[in-house]
Design a binder for these strands. Structure first.
Length: 577
RNA sequence: GCACCCAUAGCUCAAUUGGAUAGAGCAUCUGACUACGAAUCAGAAGGUUGCAGGUUCGACUCCUGCUGGGUGCACCA
């Protein structure tokens, strides 16, 4: 990587570490966080270092004195204007404005906008979306899909070799019920027009019958056994169910701009389950209890996990362990990330623990999010109060279309629709991505489809305005190239914008390493707010030559970051909205 | 009963993982379209961070105990 594309904070962190080492030669600094971070408050410089206070705690001395010692010893890097000691021992750093301009120039000449190649030669598997076959996707599925996809994009942007795997729920006891129900009361017409809905109807009906009718339950069980033993007819039916479901899911994924490298459902690992259990037994981790084979994790505070049912069948703990073993052998990933809702926390803790015990070296991460609820209650298929994902997408596009029509009445209809699609889908995604997911979410249409304030359309609007400025500039000054002029930061708002622009790479790194797309969304919104203020308060096209070109360049870099940053969240940026 | 999670402005959420005066958006109020797109901007108002203790230079953040809500806890995934 080119040296100038390393963020200023990264360089300053290294500089601080060196200076502290010089001040305190005998002291072990390895455990002290020495990083330089963006200032928490703009009035206290551009960046700050809190290490003096942390170090003072370690040394049991006065933090201000430590900071003072640092300041006396410090030889300022060329791009630093000055440093100041403040408060209990903050080291506030002021950057030279010219250095900021240089940093922007370097970013602009880099196709990756300064993103580091952190993931070189590392494979990360992201397991997300993972819906069940024969059940329509509803609004509860969107979070895993959208968050997982954003992580996918973030890791890829940082150079990781990402494998996106859709671990479909395509195997299990429900298929006995569905096969039986299908034979008895499938509606051929409904199966054509709305296949997954019909499969679900069949399942629900069959399930309810099994609860009341023992004979029915036994027949379903028999169908399941036949399927598991490879019976041709049942196998063909199962394949048909999977195919019908997938084709419908793919239609939704396409609308969402989501794609996977693999669709390896649970069935893919089916023939590895017996071996997995054998391995657990061999390692002495499994024991028989009430006829079932279990891993007792009581000692680690993780209850008991069943790995083979008393009827000899396997359950999802076993499947998940087998999946990890298989993935590790095939891809040697450095990490596997799972994106699911919070209800599965215990399950993941259990099987991560077991994997560790059998010596799986891979880092396993569970990214969980709060359950989606309706204002009245938790929604469930049985209650019949689910909102289907497609209905949500349709509604989003319809509402966006209304807005587009009123604000751009002259546009032809096809373009209006295309924009409404990007804006509507973007709004939905952003709603899920812009908040820390670890709290339960109450679904409201109003919130899901927010179009102003902290929302995707706000960011898209900022982008479209820049695109418009760019085109107007090109039309008015066809013989000029802004890049032939230097970036000069004279207005305070220009400097503030510049500082935020330089922090794009750090935002991406942070979002990925915390597995929180919301960090990226926060950054982009903050950037957009600063840009909007710049836009509203400083003339571009009417400015004198020089400042004019410099501002056009700031606009261009902002546009590039908005476009790329939103792309990392899977959100499109139309040139006109 | 045990475990995990959540509680911040009227509402929806932030707070760089222990830092300086807790910040945004919506809603409310006041201003700004004969400058580049008003899906915008400038400003005002809004807080005992659920409660009570504790740890320390410093707590929304960590510890203990409560209150209220959510979710799990043996053959569904």
């Amino acid at each position: 990587m080119k040296k100038e594309s390393i963020s200023l904070e990264t360089q300053l962190s290294a500089w601080c570490a060196e200076t502290f080492a010089a001040c305190f030669p005998g002291v072990d600094l390895s455990t002290i966080p020495l990083a330089v971070i963006p200032s928490r408050n703009e009035e206290f410089g551009d960046c700050q270092c809190e290490a003096a206070m942390k170090l003072a705690k370690e040394l049991k001395t006065n933090p201000r004195a430590v900071a003072q010692q640092f300041k006396e010893k410090a030889v300022l890097p060329a791009f630093v204007e000055k440093i100041e000691i403040a408060g209990p021992g903050f080291i506030n750093i002021y950057l030279k404005t010219a250095a900021l301009a240089d940093q922007l120039t370097a970013m602009q000449s880099d196709k990756k906008l300064g993103l580091p190649n952190l993931g070189k030669n590392q494979t990360v598997i992201i397991d997300y979306s993972s819906p069940n076959v024969a059940k329509p996707m509803h609004i509860g599925h969107i979070r895993s899909t959208v968050i997982g996809n954003a992580l996918d994009r973030l890791y890829r942007a940082l150079g990781y070799n990402v494998i996106a795997d859709n671990h479909l729920g395509d195997w299990g006891t429900q298929f006995g019920l569905i096969i039986l129900g299908y034979r008895e009361f499938a509606d051929a017409e409904a199966l054509k027009t709305a296949p997954v809905e019909e499969l679900e109807r069949i399942y629900v009906k069959s399930y309810n019958m099994s609860k009341e009718d023992e004979t029915w339950r036994d027949r379903a069980k028999a169908e399941l056994v036949k399927l598991q033993q490879g019976d041709k007819e049942n196998r063909a039916l199962w394949e048909k169910f999977v195919e019908l479901t997938l084709s419908e899911f793919n239609r939704i994924y396409k609308r969402l701009g989501v794609s996977f490298d693999f669709y390896r459902g649970e069935s893919f690992y089916n023939d590895q389950l017996a071996g997995t259990v054998a391995r657990l037994k061999k390692e002495g981790l499994a024991s028989v209890s009430d006829g079932a084979l279990v891993c007792d994790l009581e000692a680690d505070g993780l209850n008991v996990a069943i790995v083979r049912k008393s009827d000899g069948g396997y359950n999802y703990t076993t499947t998940d362990i087998a999946t990890v073993i298989s993935r590790t052998a095939e891809f040697q990933p450095s990490e596997i990330i799972y994106v699911t809702d919070e209800r599965q926390q215990l399950h993941f803790k259990q099987f991560f623990h077991i994997c560790k015990k059998i010596g799986v070296p891979t880092k396993l991460t569970h990214v969980w999010f709060g359950l989606m609820r309706l204002p009245e209650a938790t929604f469930s298929t049985r209650e019949g109060n689910v909102i289907k994902l497609e209905a949500l997408l349709n509604e989003a596009e319809a509402r966006a279309l209304e807005v587009v029509k009123t604000s751009s009445p002259g546009m032809d209809e096809a373009q209006q629709r295309e924009i409404a699609r990007a804006v509507g889908i973007g709004a939905i995604k952003y709603t899920d991505l812009s908040q820390n997911p670890q709290s339960l979410v109450t679904f409201t249409w109003e919130k899901a489809l927010a179009m102003d304030g902290n929302s995707a359309p706000y960011l898209q609007y900022a982008y479209a305005r820049i695109a418009s400025v760019r085109d107007k500039y090109a039309a008015q000054f066809p013989d000029k190239n802004p890049d032939d002029f230097p970036i000069i930061l004279t207005e305070e708002i220009e400097r503030r914008l510049a500082l935020k622009l330089t922090r794009f790479p750090a935002a991406v790194v942070s979002a990925a390493s915390l597995d929180r797309p919301s960090v990226m969304a926060d950054y982009l919104f903050d950037l957009s707010q600063t840009y909007s203020s710049f836009y509203q308060n400083v003339p571009f096209l009417k400015a004198d030559e020089g400042p004019r070109e410099s501002r056009i360049r700031l606009c261009a870099l902002t546009a590039a970051i908005l476009k790329n940053g939103l792309a990392l969240l899977g959100i499109e940026t139309p040139e006109r909205i």
